[in-house]
């Protein structure tokens, strides 16, 4: 019932802001498109045989000289932009979601434990978090990426690329989760209902699972949304800097890096179409994150 009423509040907030509805729709469409990319994309951008230089640099369908097969044109290799973007978004989202999940598991686990156990354990975890904060996300990701380059044998690097990116991005985002989970756990620990459970002799694992975690979920959901946006941006940035995904398996960031070569030429779509796609995706996620923040912050209602 409480959930229902909060939902109705959420629905009310939702009804009031067309921006949020639009963002949710955009996010769903992009997510679906990315998930179904192998089946709905006109061509397979990873298959060298599926495109040819003959089709290179075709403009989008609404411009002169367009080829109706390529709705958004082709790049300098003759790759269909629609397919490249769908597959790129798929890669970006896979990495973003996995990194966010990795950060969430690590951060929430450490945060709950630190908030519950307190004392020295808490101090150590929080000092590690401090050191992590001293190294901004991009830097951490770059460093881990650099270390992986140094440690992994050269032929293994290609296959582990995605995994390295997930770990690198995930490690740079866990602190947010840990701090929020810790603060909420700390607060809940001092609430009388938790004190009552402790006094009654309820097992700590059950207290964490039944009494504390449900009260932490709201703020964590907000962090998860905002961090998903950050993770996608980080991946795009790393790929743009040339340390992310390679050109033969491009993510959105890689596509933009390739497109940069056409900044000064007339083939604007190769740069701006994936750029616009990335920005729309991240704006939509951030709008949803903001919306969730409003829903979970009763004071702003």
């Amino acid at each position: 019932m409480r959930a229902l009423i909060r939902d109705s509040d959420a629905l009310h907030l939702l009804a009031r802001s067309p921006l949020v509805i639009a963002s949710a729709l955009v996010a769903i469409v992009i997510l679906a498109g990315a998930a179904l990319a192998p089946w709905i994309a006109p061509t397979d951008p990873y298959d060298l045989a599926s495109f040819s230089l003959v089709d290179a640099l075709r403009p989008p369908a609404f411009q002169d000289g367009a080829d109706p097969r390529f709705l958004l044109g082709t790049d300098d290799q003759g790759r269909d932009m629609v397919s490249a973007i769908l597959h790129g978004a798929r890669l970006s989202l896979v990495i973003g979601l996995s990194a966010m999940a990795f950060a969430a598991v690590l951060g929430v686990g450490l945060g709950l434990a630190a908030g519950w156990i307190g004392g020295r354990f808490d101090a150590v975890v929080m000092r590690i978090a401090d050191v992590q904060l001293a190294l901004p996300a991009i830097l951490t990701a770059l460093l881990i990426d650099g270390i992986a380059r140094g440690v992994l044998p050269r032929d293994a690097q290609e296959e582990t690329r995605v995994a390295v990116l997930i770990v690198a991005i995930g490690l740079s985002l866990w602190v947010n989760f840990a701090r929020t989970a810790r603060a909420s756990t700390f607060r809940a620990r001092n609430e009388d209902y938790v004190q009552a459970a402790i006094a009654m002799g309820v097992h700590p694992a059950r207290i964490l699972a039944v009494e504390i975690l449900p009260n932490v979920v709201g703020p964590l959901l907000v962090i998860a949304t905002v961090d998903l946006a950050s993770a996608i941006l980080l991946e795009a940035t790393l790929s743009f800097l040339g340390v992310g995904l390679p050109a033969d398996a491009p993510s959105l960031g890689t596509l933009i890096r390739i497109g940069m070569q056409f900044l000064l030429s007339g083939e604007w779509w190769i740069l701006w179409v994936p750029t616009a796609f990335l920005v729309v995706l991240v704006v939509a996620i951030n709008v949803l994150g903001d919306f969730l923040r409003d829903v979970f912050n009763p004071r702003l209602r």
Partner: peptide, 15 residues
């Protein structure tokens, strides 16, 4: 058994 002061804090809102 204990009965606490603040009835708003002594019952878990999510249960």
């Amino acid at each position: 058994q204990m009965v606490f002061q603040d009835p708003y804090s002594s019952l878990n809102a999510r249960r």
